[in-house]
Design a protein around this nucleic acid. Structure first.
Lengths: 214, 214
DNA sequence: TAGATTGTTAATCGATTAACAATC
DNA sequence: TAGATTGTTAATCGATTAACAATC
């Protein structure tokens, strides 16, 4: 089984979203060119990406939208639900706990954890907040494999250690601390600073470009 | 001027964070190998990245930490402050308005906007929330060039249209709607679904791998 | 049938990695 | 001086783009 390139994994959910929308508006079949136009990609790239899902299209017609959606969802594993624990119920933790979009992605945050005792036993968006002391026991009992870190940077590593000790296999890290974990543990790093530096670099290049013209 | 590769722009803030930490712990100079070790990169890659900032190192010694920090900050434009408006003060909007880390990156959200009249004139983290009707006028008066969209998906495009009409040149989009904007307008797309699909793909591959072993 | 679109193989492009001379 | 580390040029690797035969 050839491993899927990361850029492909990033684009597949975008295709899915677009297709859902397109289908709602009555579209039954769709071609790579159409998809590419709407998402600002090239049709060749879309075709290549689709091949990963195993979909078979019809020349001159394209793909059956519902079938393509299913193939993508299946390929990304959105059918078997991934359950996760979140540690750090601050502003961002709150936002993630409240995010509606996860269910569609076969992803579910089943509990939140926080050091602040005033938050314990409250619920956010129907999800119970518990003390970190309960993390390990619950994670093992519920066979949770994914941990989300939205704590202050200062306790991020400490939190990761607890997660690893609790049998967590993948950590979604929203702090900017590069976590030290055993090689077998996956870390998916979310980084606003990285995105921002791309944005401001492009912006400043544009502004400079215009200055020349003006 | 050669354009900076996106992967480099993503890594530079990580170097900066690490250096800040390293300096605080008393480090005066540092080599590429050391940086690479701490961030799980190769030293060659670090060296190449550093070259973009224009830093000059000393063979056998490495780089002066403070100088390197300055070069990175300067290269990423963290000195001239980028001001932004945010539209959509929901959970995520709230989290961004409250995020402390932006100031370090020369980034500042100076106002929030929302359709919900009950939020108008309140402040979040000291930032005033205003009705969208004031967006254009204010953006032009304050010469704001960056807009952040954290609205519900349904009104994302509409919000983008208002931003474009108001002279916004770069949009940081946290909704999963692919925005239609003039070519001159930059869109930086933030996409949790993309990150999640990478994470779950890697996780399921790992689990399968272990199954074979077991 | 003619033409559009798929599936797939080949060419290009860009980023990472390797190699090595320069130098403190 | 000897050895570690930089700066830079060359080689590799992987993703995107191009080309084109197959086919509905």
């Amino acid at each position: 089984m050839k491993t899927t390139p990361i850029p492909v994994l990033k684009r597949l959910p975008m295709y899915y979203d677009f297709l859902a929308n397109y289908y709602q508006q009555g579209g039954e079949t769709i071609s790579c060119t159409q998809i590419a136009d709407h998402l600002n990609l090239t049709s060749i790239q879309v075709r290549k990406d689709m091949a990963f899902t195993g979909i078979i299209g019809k020349p001159k017609v394209g793909y059956v939208v519902t079938e393509l959606q299913q193939k993508i969802a299946n390929f990304l594993g959105w059918n078997n639900i991934n359950e996760a624990f979140l540690v750090g119920v601050g502003h961002l933790g709150n936002a993630l706990l409240s995010f509606e979009g996860f269910s569609k992605l076969g992803f579910k945050i089943v509990a939140g954890f926080d050091a602040d005792s005033s938050k314990i036993d409250s619920t956010v968006h129907g999800i119970k907040i518990m003390p970190i002391s309960k993390f390990k026991n619950l994670a093992q009992r519920m066979k949770i494999h994914i941990g989300i870190i939205t704590t202050p940077a200062l306790v991020a590593q400490e939190t990761a250690d607890i997660m690893v000790d609790s049998g967590i296999l993948a950590i979604w890290n929203f702090t900017d601390i590069p976590l030290k974990v055993p090689e077998s543990v996956i870390v998916q790093q979310e980084n606003l600073a990285s995105s921002l530096s791309i944005l401001s670099n492009r912006l400043s290049k544009n502004l400079k470009g215009n200055a020349h013209v003006a």
